[in-house]
Amino acid sequence: MPAERHAAGPRPRRTGTAATAALLAPTYLWLAVAVFLPLAGMLYFSLLTGVPAPHHPAAFTAENYLAFVRKPYLLHVAWRSLALGLWTTGLCALIGWPAALALSRAVRGRARDAIFLLTILPFWTSGLVRVLSWTMVLADHGLLDRALGAVIPGWRVSDLLYTFPAIVIGLVHAYLPYMILTCYVSLAAIDPALIEAARGLGARAPVIFARILLPISLPGLLSGAVLIFVPVIGSFMEPRILGGRVGVTMGTVIEDQFTQAFDWPLGAALSFTMLAAVLLLFGVLYGASRLRPAA
């Protein structure tokens, strides 16, 4: 006769919760240490007058968050960063979506694998090396000019390096794979029968693109856009190396604060201001997507 040691009734759910917590703990620990702690540290910095040093104690101030008011030129810089983001995202969408479409529909087997490899090849190389090689291509009498000259003697694109378009070229090259991959996932999931059904109903290519393929793959386009827009507005490598005197963006200004001006509080405050702007943008987009009627 077993002793009545255990209380009668259903076993408590604690084991389930404990197991879940145990599985989640490493991830949250990592997030806390690698992301939240440094962010919190930076937030603290952003409210100081300067980097605390033995002879320079720092006081608390909100001055740094007024940077855009005190230094109006920062607004132009912010606008340029935004323009970079929009141009890059737009071009990546224009080039990436058709590429993903071709990859998902027109190419099969070995050829598709090969093209996939080529698409993600930029990820295999160091970002810095990539951007530096663009300087060789875009420079006056660089590789591009020489290639053009080989086709039509004397044909050159002058002064392409150290301009806004040069930065955009470098950024599009770096971020295009994101768009291609996200759009590919969306497009490949489309049942080919849908397209045949549309054709059977009398639709031709333009209608199929606009009414079927584009709307259904919109999630892919949007996630690609987010993956590209957010890093680009904060980028500083491409602007610095390809932009010459035009390459002044929020990214380079913030980087300057940390490496040249040693004004960490200002750099931190600018970073958080940008973060707030991006979160605001997401909030608006998300709200708008919910408001739309189920159509």
Binding site: Y73, V246, V248
Partner: peptide, 10 residues
Amino acid sequence: WSEMKAFYAG
């Protein structure tokens, strides 16, 4: 100098 760099860019 920061202001000058921004000025040169714009």
